[in-house]
Design a binder for these strands. Structure first.
Length: 669
DNA sequence: ATTAGGG
DNA sequence: CCCTAAT
């Protein structure tokens, strides 16, 4: 018996990713601002459901274990959540553990990193959370029974069950369960799957939604209805919709109560539309908030100390240097690693086909049209690190979790395909070429759900056999994260001729995307992997309410730094020419005049380039880097710069004269 | 949407 | 090249 929370939401369309975008200008301060955005149910996304569940569980844990639970008014029990058999253990556990809470000495339990689950440092004696059972990692175990899962390996994760079919009806059912467990050892295939399975029994899970759902175009959720026309996985996701069942109203209401919490919206999603528009019209990506991913190691460290978070963003000047992402010091840290690790997803032959896959394919079938059919039993959400001050309330924790998860999916997710436990990266191969035919045993097919970006600039989807297909599973530990980008779900409609040129860059970019990969692999240790949620205490007193959930998913989802495209001498020439005539300060016009057709050059780019040109011209040739710009051009830059600087006030005056003057000065030098 | 300037 | 602020 498991948690039986119905997560389906109304049938009125799920509006999954429809999260309001905040004006770019207000992004920073948003945390609180966003609060006012209506947090309507319609915007609750699937993940919210998960978070909800998680929240419920936490709640349950609280109420079950102590009367001291917070938000006692918020008792939305999951009814019959706890299975008899577990109840005793559960209570016992909770009791003993809870009693431990009274013992100051036991407070240090939170330092036990090997413990997965929720961890709250007991830095403050009377921290609110500390008063609840869940404040201690060990206590979190109590959650296990709640979910009714047998955690063999003690993995604690957020699990989402779903069923996907490729049939025309393509239905996507999303069920969710929050599994909590203690991890006593490294992740291993068995554990997770076991959990998954314990949740998946259809008869036990009432979350399945019969309706198929449409995901907002924004999100490439691997929902059903993905026809696989040519055996290619590309171009899917156009028509699925997530439907919310009415009976989930409770759920919705639940969150309604927390309107004030809507505060931090996954900024990750902010700007998507604009981005697209911008990209299309100006060829410039819309600003995105930086998204830094903590290495898991960092995350761990974070568990024990409040740290100052700092951004280590990549400056275009020193790109590739910083690979880590830090979060703001507001208290919340949400991280997601590259996605499901291969290990956790891969099949283990001995165990049987369906046993060890998070996403498992079930069966080929009579194919008259050679269509492959499979069902996805469940999938696990990557990894989420959440850091909140211990003074935060449980309620805020819940919201945080919810937001975190929402943010995670906010920008879409990527799907990785695993065959025989190996990640298949070549999106262009057909299924049959990949060894997946209706006649084959699909038990070897698996999928991974990874944080994704819908618009990775450089979709390798095009071609790149070389890069792809590194099915060197030998190294599963290397984690699929290693190349999430490669599995980009982007249709990759790059219109520019960048492809060729950028393929190289793309690789670089991809790396940027998967910053802490290697580090991740190291920490598959017990503690890290097994916990899906790791609330960390931060001393921040006030905190949580405004926790900026912002940074998290961006990296992957929202934005990708545009690929670098050094200006060619020709472009520089054109720019100089234009500036000489138009002057600085009218970049729009410059753009129009000389770069009308260069969609990738925005006026901002031009302005920036000019800035650098001026700088370049000002320094000694030895200090210059990159493709050398002819000195004469630099001279003209200086001349024009000088000229227009002097004439700031009267820029509209006699452009011609200006040009003339500039030319003179330039040549005379 | 642009512009200006800091990072 | 990104991000913000201010227009």
């Amino acid at each position: 018996m498991v948690v039986k929370r119905k997560l389906n939401c109304g049938s009125n369309g799920f509006d999954f990713p429809n999260i309001p975008k905040a004006p770019r200008s207000s992004r920073r301060k948003v945390s609180s601002k966003i609060a006012d955005d209506d947090g309507d149910d319609s915007q609750i996304c699937a993940i919210d459901l998960l978070a909800s569940l998680a929240g419920k569980l936490l709640e349950e844990s609280e109420s079950s274990s102590s009367t001291n639970a917070f938000e006692g008014d918020n008792h939305h029990h999951l009814g019959g959540v706890i299975k008899k058999e577990h109840e005793d253990d559960y209570n016992k556990t909770i009791k003993s553990e809870f009693s431990d809470l009274g013992n100051p000495a036991s407070k240090s339990t939170s330092e036990n990193t090997s413990e997965t689950c929720l961890q709250f440092s007991s830095l403050e004696n009377d921290s609110i959370l500390e008063k609840t059972p869940i404040s201690d990692c060990g206590k979190a175990r109590g959650l296990k029974p709640l979910v009714g899962c047998e955690n063999k390996k003690g993995n604690s994760d957020l699990l989402v069950e779903s069923v996907v079919t490729t049939e025309e009806t393509g239905v996507v059912n999303v069920d969710a369960g929050f599994v909590k467990g203690e991890a006593t050892n490294g992740l291993d295939d068995g554990g997770l799957v076991a959990d998954t399975f314990s949740l998946k029994d259809p008869s036990q899970v009432q979350l399945q939604s019969p309706e198929s759902v449409y995901l907002d175009g924004d999100v490439k959720l691997p929902s059903g209805a993905y026809r696989v026309p040519n055996g290619s996985f590309e171009g899917y996701g156009n028509k699925s919709k997530l439907v919310r069942r009415d009976d989930d109203e409770n759920y919705c209401k639940y969150y309604k109560f927390n309107d004030k919490c809507k505060s931090y919206r996954p900024l990750a999603r902010v700007g998507n539309r604009r981005m697209k528009k911008s990209m299309a019209k100006y060829g410039r990506a819309v600003p995105r908030s930086k998204c830094f991913e903590d290495t898991r190691t960092d995350a761990l460290k974070a568990l024990y100390r409040k740290r100052k978070l700092y951004y280590g963003y990549n400056s275009w000047k020193h790109e590739s240097v910083h690979k880590k992402r830090r979060l703001s010091d507001k208290g919340l840290v949400v991280n997601s690693d590259g996605g499901l690790s291969s290990e956790s997803v891969s099949n283990s032959p001995e165990k049987g086909e369906s046993e060890n896959v998070v996403f498992s394919a079930a069966v080929g079938l009579r194919s008259k049209d050679s269509r492959v059919k499979f069902s996805i039993k469940s999938f696990r959400i990557p990894e989420l690190f959440i850091e909140v001050p211990e003074t935060a309330t449980v309620g805020s924790l819940k919201r945080t979790v919810r937001e975190a998860v929402t943010a995670l999916l906010g920008g879409g997710i990527r799907i990785g395909v695993l065959v025989q436990g190996k990640k298949v990266r070549d999106d262009n191969n057909t299924l049959s070429q990949t060894g997946l035919s209706c006649r084959e045993n699909l038990g070897n097919l698996g999928f991974t759900l990874e944080p994704g970006t819908e618009k990775l600039p450089v979709p390798l989807c095009s071609e790149n056999p070389a890069v792809a297909v590194p099915t060197d599973s030998t190294n599963l530990s290397e984690r699929s994260a290693a190349s999430p980008v490669l599995d980009s779900i982007i249709p990759c409609p790059l219109q520019d001729a960048d492809h060729l040129i950028n393929s190289g860059n793309s690789v670089e970019n991809n790396h940027e995307l998967v910053p802490y990969q290697s580090e991740i692999s190291t920490d598959e240790q017990p503690s890290s992997d097994s916990r899906a949620l790791v609330p960390v205490s931060a001393l921040e007193p006030e905190a949580l309410a405004i926790v900026p959930i912002s940074e998290k998913p961006k990296r992957t989802e929202l934005s990708q730094r545009r690929t670098r495209r050094p200006f060619s001498v020709t472009e520089v020439e054109a720019l100089v020419q234009a500036v000489e005539e138009i002057g600085t300060g009218r970049w729009r016009d410059v753009k129009l005049r000389s770069f009308e057709n260069a969609s990738h050059r925005t006026y901002v780019d031009l302005k920036d380039k000019w800035k650098t040109l001026v700088h370049t011209a000002s320094i000694s040739p030895q200090q210059r880097r990159g493709e050398p710009v002819p000195q004469d051009l630099l001279d003209r830059v200086l001349g024009a710069h000088r000229y227009w600087s002097q004439n700031q006030m009267k820029q509209n005056v006699k452009p011609q004269a200006a040009a003339t003057v500039v030319v003179k000065s330039g040549s005379s030098m």
